[in-house]
């Protein structure tokens, strides 16, 4: 009997599983539910409303999201006759899986025992995996066979072309500064409050805006712009499938926030990973999650402030302003490495 329990604990503690299921799915999902509540509350606060309230007045409407979740789960999933069924059903699922997959390349500790993968090229791997999921949004739009969905998918394609290079290059500025693709080494280079957000704020800024662009957060919520293309590529989806689509975008933003935390916000510092499961793995990952949640809160705060850019404006911003800034940030990183500030 005890053998079984031990075996199950071993399986759960197996880093790839633990990292993918607990740190990649369950914890981000909890954060995302909190963030959705926070987003609605903040937008309401700034716009002089109250937001969710009557569901549970004592905890400021906190149960509203749970109610929404239940509603989404029990709604009928309608699959129109005109869609390409296989692609229609599989696209959001693959997008969901791909948007949480990069978490296997993000280190939550520096104890090699708890790495799910060898960390030597983890930054490149994480960035490569992150850039896969938007393709399936285009697939979803194409499979829906609906003009709004196709326009939404096309907008997404335009945006991918614009933001990808910005996001990747500004993350790679960290590589320029440290000369390594190893995320653990990048975190180690940030000891003693030498966080890269302080050393290279420009790269953090461009990465931040790149993430906003890529996860269609305000003010770049263009591919799903409600007034113009209903729900963009997700127009034909209903019920749980729509929930998955929306959830995938938020999960992706969460994963990006984790990556931003590790690369620019000093990872698990000020905590130093110690011995054992609790201090070596759990505590550092909690620190990283707290930092990432604060980032997520800043992301969702923009919903309260901004309207929405037009597609051409967003692309213009990406190419005319952000791209040069990214190159400058990359150069700044190289300079700092040359003069040995890192």
């Amino acid at each position: 009997m005890t053998g079984w329990v031990e075996a199950i604990i071993k399986i759960i503690e197996w880093p790839p599983l633990w990292q993918l299921v607990v740190l990649g799915l369950i914890a981000p999902l909890a954060v995302v539910i909190y963030i959705l509540w926070f987003e609605r509350k903040t937008a309401a606060r700034v716009q002089r409303r109250i937001g969710p309230y009557h569901v549970s007045p004592r905890i400021a409407g906190g149960l509203q999201l749970l109610a929404d979740l239940i509603r989404y789960s029990f709604q009928e999933v309608i699959i129109p006759k005109t869609v390409d069924k296989a692609a229609f059903i599989s696209a959001p699922l693959i997008a969901l899986i791909l948007s949480i997959l990069p978490v296997v390349a993000i280190p939550f500790t520096d104890v090699p025992k708890w790495f799910p993968l060898p960390m030597d090229y983890s930054l490149i791997l994480a960035l490569a995996l992150v850039t896969l999921s938007p393709l399936f949004i285009i697939v979803a739009g194409w499979a829906s066979n609906n003009k709004f969905a196709i326009i939404g998918g096309m907008r997404e394609a335009y945006l991918i072309v614009s933001y990808e290079i910005i996001a990747i290059l500004s993350f790679l500025a960290a590589t320029a500064m440290t000369g390594t693709y190893n995320l653990v080494d990048i975190v180690h280079a940030q000891t003693g409050w030498k966080w890269f957000i302080v050393l290279n704020p420009l790269a953090f800024f461009t990465a931040f805006v790149g993430v906003l662009l890529s996860t269609s957060g305000f003010p770049f919520e263009i591919a799903e712009s409600e007034h113009e293309v209903v729900a963009g590529a997700f127009t034909e989806y209903s019920g749980l499938m729509y929930g998955i689509n929306m959830g995938a975008a938020y999960l992706k933003r969460m994963i990006y926030s984790l990556l931003l935390t590790v690369v620019f916000l000093g990872g698990w510092y000020p905590l130093k990973p110690g011995e054992g499961f609790i201090w070596g793995y759990l505590a550092p990952s909690i620190v990283i999650f707290i930092k990432a949640t604060i980032l997520m809160m800043i992301f969702s705060f923009f919903r309260a402030v901004y309207g929405r850019y037009r597609l051409d404006q967003a692309i213009e911003i990406a190419w005319k302003i952000l791209f040069p800034l990214t190159v400058i940030a990359f150069g700044l990183g190289l300079l700092e490495a040359y003069y040995g500030i890192i």
Binding site: T42, R45, V46, Q47, R48, R49, I50, Y53, F301, A304
Partner: peptide
């Protein structure tokens, strides 16, 4: 506005 909300909703 976030730190000093001027809500005017009638509950």
């Amino acid at each position: 506005y976030f730190f000093d909300p001027k809500r005017s909703t009638l509950i």
